[in-house]
């Protein structure tokens, strides 16, 4: 296992862009974990005396607030750093929802086939026939607009993609000799699916989970920008951008930094996903 991990690391390291992606992701995780240490300010406490101070390089800016302050006098750097916590949480929760339901649906459809497969895949097709952000908006309109519901909505939106991937992997694996041997040995369907087939379908799922993490952060920021996700004063990057709309002519820093944070997160996870695809399953990329 140790040598496998080492081999994986060596292969991954060869892909320079993936490595850059990994550094970005690690940087984001560090920002998220150590946000209270990295900054002395609170992301929510308002200080109206310090409203709309520009970044240190602009006229009127100072090193007290490196990236400036927002319309309520809150430190921008602090809010962007704390935003990393929220975005990573969104990614983790949304991907967990998509992954768990998608894997179950895909595994059951692929393994049992027939009518079960037909019904599950029809549901998947129906979900995929509605554009992702529109489906997320529909779900939020049912559940109500807040950050947690947005995470659930994005999680649900991701289910069909995972279901399709797992189904095709299970279909490819289920008639292989090791599965037949296990079946002949008397393994139950549950045991066959969970302990025999699924462990051999992990590669495309890991790649998809990384890519979906990026999409989840992007979709959540989009929902918050539309006022359907995180609500003020939560320091979520999309919500911060929505807030910046009215200050677009006077406070450029309110637009730039939350956007850069979203962009870096999305590109970081996309590059890591691309790199994982290269190392774990080069054939997948060709498809």
């Amino acid at each position: 296992m140790g040598s496998k991990a080492l081999e994986f690391y060596k292969q991954f390291k060869k892909n320079k862009t993936a490595l850059v992606g990994a550094y970005v992701v690690v940087f984001l995780i560090i920002c998220a974990i150590f946000a209270p240490i990295l900054t002395q300010y609170d992301p929510l406490i308002q200080n109206l005396d310090n409203r709309l101070i520009p970044p240190f390089w602009s006229k009127g800016g100072s090193f007290t607030h490196i990236l400036g302050t927002d319309d309520f006098g809150r430190d921008m750097l602090t809010r962007v750093l704390y935003g990393a916590r929220i975005s990573l949480t969104i990614g983790i929760i949304s991907v967990s929802i998509s992954l768990s339901f998608g894997v179950i649906m895909g595994a059951v459809a692929g393994y049992f086939g027939g009518l079960t497969d037909l019904i599950i895949m029809r549901v998947v097709d129906i979900m995929l026939s509605i554009p992702a952000i529109l489906l997320a908006i529909v779900i939020v309109s049912i559940l109500g607009a807040d950050l947690f519901n947005a995470m659930i909505a994005i999680g649900i939106v991701g289910i069909p993609t995972f279901a399709r991937i797992v189904r095709s992997s299970v279909l490819a694996e289920k008639n292989k000799e090791y599965v037949i041997a296990s079946r002949v040995n008397g393994s139950s369907d549950f045991r066959l699916i969970v302990f025999v087939v699924l462990p051999n379908c992990t590669t495309p799922v890991i790649v998809q989970a990384t890519m979906w993490f990026a999409s989840a952060v992007l979709e959540a920021a989009g929902l918050s920008f539309l006022g359907l996700g995180a609500q003020p004063p939560t320091p979520e990057w999309g919500a911060m951008l929505a807030d910046s709309l009215q200050f677009i002519t006077t406070a450029y820093w309110m637009i730039i930094f939350p956007g850069i944070a979203i962009f870096l997160t999305v590109i970081g996870f996309n590059l890591v996903g691309d790199g994982l695809m290269d190392v774990l399953d080069p054939k997948l990329k060709e498809k």
Binding site: A221, G222, L241, I248, T249, I255, I256, G259, I262, V266
Partner: peptide
């Protein structure tokens, strides 16, 4: 193109407004 795929469309919109309009 890689940057374009990862770009939040609403942020890009805001940046375009800032540079080309304002």
């Amino acid at each position: 193109a890689l940057a374009g795929v990862s770009m939040p469309v609403f942020w890009l919109g805001l940046m375009l407004i800032y540079f080309f309009s304002i």
